[in-house]
Design a binder for these strands. Structure first.
Ligand SMILES: [Mn+2]
Ligand SMILES: [Mn+2]
Ligand SMILES: [Mn+2]
Ligand SMILES: [Mn+2]
Lengths: 223, 223
DNA sequence: GGATCTATTTTGATTTGTCAAAATCCATCC
DNA sequence: GGATGGATTTTGACAAATCAAAATAGATCC
């Protein structure tokens, strides 16, 4: 069985590999994500490579093997289903559940996972709009526009909020920016780095381009 | 924060101290319960004593400090509430949930614990009839008769099944011996070590005195 | 092409939790 | 009172995961 540390290394490797065309994850990015010093990541990655869970290309980075990806997807599925349970069933704050799931993802058996999945009605996404890997190991990689890149004036549906920090999620929540909400970009001022937004029947407000880029949106008529 | 190992040592110390009038737990019993060799338990207990969680009386045993007992009760509360959740909400087999809870008890935060407790309606006992410690840290120590010690012929209500092994629980379940069930002892043959039992409107069956001693019962009119 | 800078790796050490096996204590039994 | 035996402790070793700091490899920039 994979230890908690191994599960965390594999899960973060999967997440970092997503935004890298060749799936190669630099050692430094992995170390930062896991909050360890670079030397620790190197040591661990070599051990993971010995176990056949990753391929280590010295000085270039690492990538998951098929087996490593299988384990990582299972952990990610647990993480996101647990978050969904905590929000939908236990009614916890969506800003808190990431930290909780970070622990629970390692303690839940596959048997409990299946029951949770059924109880929740086999959800496709978690409370933040993050896709939940299927039991078979498929993970949606759909890419959307963001409030920093979308057309102005059009009505758009929020589909995903890609920042797990409690502060950002609390801010988003306060302005009604959760998956399902409808909003339109009134104005985008690139020199100032500001986006002005209005939710359906609410007062307009502004946020930075950096913050806007974390909110993914889709046309209202779709799905 | 206490590590998983520390939490397990404290929880098992609490459980073993329950059936010892002075609360002193011999090192060997603790080692057996935790499935480690005696030397490992000695080493760990000395570390726990340094942390102020137990008192170590060399060659005699150990006992929990007030702080150690507080931590142990919190872990036990998590264990038993998780078992209750797994059986009552996720409809899992009561023979499986002990092993699941053994992991989950270390991954659940106090915030999640409170929500679970509310969702379950603040239960007093878990699916096996084991008392759930209160948030304030009180734990019922009520002692009942067992099918090995109770009066014969009288109708009795099962209140607790004190063996967590899957085999025994599956056997008990198969004969309807779960908390709430009503049964009577038809006969007790001490030389043969056999107890003959009948549940309400069911065929009589026999089990060993050892097995009968694990089923706790109370008069039907009580509680 | 050589100096410089940065990411990565290596080295040596530490913490936590464990085992195997030897040493020791102490209660009990003649 | 001394021998015996079982429980406990000690000793030495090990695996997993980590850090601090030194060494190294590559890329980049004159
Ligand atoms: Mn985690
Ligand atoms: Mn999420
Ligand atoms: Mn446990
Ligand atoms: Mn129980």
């Amino acid at each position: 069985m994979a230890t908690i540390a191994v599960e965390n290394y594999l899960k973060h490797t999967l997440l970092l590999a997503q935004r890298s065309p060749d799936g190669l994850v630099p050692m430094g990015e992995l170390a930062t994500a896991l909050q360890v010093v670079p030397g620790t990541a190197t040591t661990m990655v070599k051990a993971l490579a010995d176990s056949g869970l990753v391929l280590h290309e010295p000085r270039r980075g690492l990538r998951l093997t098929v087996e490593g990806r299988r384990v990582a997807l299972n952990v990610l599925r647990k993480h996101r289903l647990v978050e969904t349970f905590l929000v939908n069933v236990l009614k916890m704050d969506w800003a808190q559940v990431h930290a909780e799931a970070e622990q629970l993802e390692h303690a839940i058996s596959d048997a409990v996972l299946d029951r949770l999945d059924a109880l929740l009605g086999h959800p496709a996404t978690d409370p933040h709009g993050d896709p939940i890997p299927s039991v078979e190991g498929t993970l949606s990689s759909a890419v959307y526009a963001t409030l920093a890149s979308c057309a102005t004036k059009a009505s758009l549906r929020v589909v995903r909020v890609t920042d797990q920090t409690a502060d950002f999620l609390t801010f988003a929540e306060a302005h009604g920016l959760r998956p399902g909400a409808v909003a339109q970009v009134l104005d985008r001022n690139l020199p100032a780095g500001l986006v002005t937004l209005r939710r359906l029947r609410s007062k307009p407000f502004a946020l930075s381009l950096a913050a806007a880029g974390k909110i993914w949106v889709a046309p209202v008529e779709a799905g």
